[in-house]
């Protein structure tokens, strides 16, 4: 039985379309690709949106190409290395393939840093337009009350958290905009591991987190 069937909170159309069109910041693409890896429903919605891209390619005009373009392309093909025949497949760990690639390993390989109140994080290397990070929240602990200036995506990889909106379990994604001021709390029990992306620095409501914010890049 696939975990995919239990997912309640999905990507919205805007994010899927941005991913399909290739217009999202890299950090958002990483969260979207990781969620799709876990969710058949969003995988099929995204594949349908890719068809829009294909249809536009088919019916949105042509540009003149160089007279020797075909010959040059065939020369490139002759010079190219043969491609490996095995695409990436499911590995047994916690992280789906795209996240595994960014971490350079699985959960045990993450280099965590304390951000206070028992919460740990690891920032992943992406372009600076937006920030992607892993969060590890001990069971029962809260992430400081915060709002955000832009969009915040939070994908649950293991464990669960709840906030003012709902409970989010493995594979669920919360899409929060600036209007949402929330306090995510990990459900009692196991650590809650999340992949989060923000397109603007988080704005903490409490004074102390605000002071440390510039050092932590949260």
């Amino acid at each position: 039985m696939s975990d995919s069937m239990n997912i309640k909170h999905h990507l919205n159309d805007d994010l899927l379309m941005g991913y399909s069109a290739g217009t999202l910041p890299e950090a958002f693409n990483l969260v979207v690709a990781t969620h799709i890896s876990m969710c058949d429903d969003c995988r099929s919605r995204q594949a349908a949106l890719d068809c829009v891209g294909g249809a536009l390619l088919e019916c949105e005009g042509v540009a003149d190409i160089a007279p020797d373009a075909l010959a040059r392309t065939l020369a490139r093909i002759d010079a190219a290395d043969p491609q490996p025949k095995v695409p990436s497949t499911r590995r047994p760990g916690v992280f789906p393939a795209p996240l595994y690639d960014y971490v350079g390993g699985d959960l045990d390989d993450v280099r965590w840093r304390d951000v206070g109140m028992g919460v740990r994080q690891a920032i992943l290397p992406t372009s600076r337009q937006a920030t992607a990070r892993l969060l590890k929240i001990p069971g029962g602990a809260a992430v400081p009350d915060h709002g955000h200036r832009g969009i915040e995506l939070t994908l649950v990889l293991s464990g669960a958290f709840r906030d003012e909106v709902d409970t989010f379990c493995k594979g669920d994604i919360e899409v929060a905009d600036e209007a949402l001021e929330h306090t995510p709390i990990a459900e009692p029990g196991a650590d809650c591991i999340c992949l989060a992306a923000t397109d603007a620095p988080l704005r903490f409501s409490g004074l102390i987190p605000r002071l440390v914010q510039p050092f932590l890049r949260i």
Binding site: R43, G53, G54, L57, P98, S127
Partner: peptide, 27 residues
Amino acid sequence: STWIFTIARNRQIDVFRKQRRPEPEDL
């Protein structure tokens, strides 16, 4: 056309936006 679009899109992100393109895990 869809498949070729995805290749063109990924190349465009790579070359012109200088970003990696994380792809979903293949089934």
